[in-house]
Design a protein around this nucleic acid. Structure first.
Ligand SMILES: [Mn+2]
Ligand SMILES: [Mn+2]
Ligand SMILES: [Zn+2]
Ligand SMILES: [Zn+2]
Lengths: 145, 145
DNA sequence: AGATCAATGCAACTTTATTGCATTTTACAA
DNA sequence: TTGTAAAATGCAATAAAGTTGCATTGATCT
């Protein structure tokens, strides 16, 4: 996703020791320009050098907790993972193709969200705002004829 | 949710025969002012008159397909179900408490979303837009102290 | 080196949802 | 009314995604 990202530094900043596996997981996520499900991340890593499925899940949990990685819900069953919003990467909506399961990042300006007033009166704590568009991607539309 | 809703009519309009179980499921969803997970819907129904878990899932699938009911994704594992947007009920964002799992409906004006321009240039088909705020609800904040 | 703690692997388990097939209920023509 | 087909429901098995417990390995610090 980003040539400016120093993954090792991101881990350090999050107070996470930069083990090889953590770096590998973060690099897969960071070098991809759309979010991926855990199974894809595991599969990719496992091909280059074997790594346990559970290890991937644990690393993902850790990176999400440390806000280095964002867990993104879909209309489907599996969560997707992308870089968390940070100085370089603004939060943005995603498009999820319910046919092929591919998720795309939309530019932050795609939608104009203003919930400032609300945020001040809401009686709970807001940690995260997620916006997702569901539909059929161009590719799947083509295939369908 | 709504005293204006004629559930039997909603089913008919969707081309779905109004069986007792379908009516029961729809009434639970419609009379609740926040979305519920399938397990809660089943549990409630099962207490009054036994109904199979799978039947509830199948009815939910059907009602979602017919756009009578909306399936709402959460940051958690289970989908939640509420009335689908229609003439009486505008689409709106939801707040999901990651602590207690309760989901609240927010008023449509909570956020000001404008993605009209985008919609016209996007090369895929958009079926649905979902917006969700995650955090800790007032109740859970109090308890935590 | 030895003690200690963190990270990883592996098997079993949990939660949520789906599938296959048998049974029951409904629709409705004869 | 009865017979028959189709639809709806129930039940058991299965699936997908994620989690937990515990053993093993690897790193860190005297
Ligand atoms: Mn993204
Ligand atoms: Mn709602
Ligand atoms: Zn697609
Ligand atoms: Zn709560």
């Amino acid at each position: 996703m980003c040539i400016h990202c120093d993954y090792r530094q991101l881990l350090k900043d999050g107070g996470v020791s930069p083990t090889l596996n953590r770096l590998r997981v973060l690099e897969i996520i960071g070098s991809n320009n759309f979010p991926l499900p855990a199974a894809d991340i595991h599969e990719t890593l496992d091909r280059s050098a074997p790594i346990n499925r559970v290890t991937v899940y644990r690393i993902l949990d850790l990176l999400v907790e440390k806000q280095i990685v964002a867990r993104i819900a879909t209309g489907g069953r599996a969560a997707y993972y992308g870089m968390a919003p940070n100085a370089q990467h603004q939060a943005h909506p995603h498009f999820y193709c319910t046919q092929c399961g591919r998720m795309d990042c939309l530019t932050p300006e795609t939608v104009d969200i203003d919930f400032h007033a609300f945020e001040n009166t809401f009686p709970g704590r807001i940690d995260k705002v997620e916006m997702r568009l569901d539909g059929i991607c161009r590719n799947c539309l083509k295939k369908k004829t």
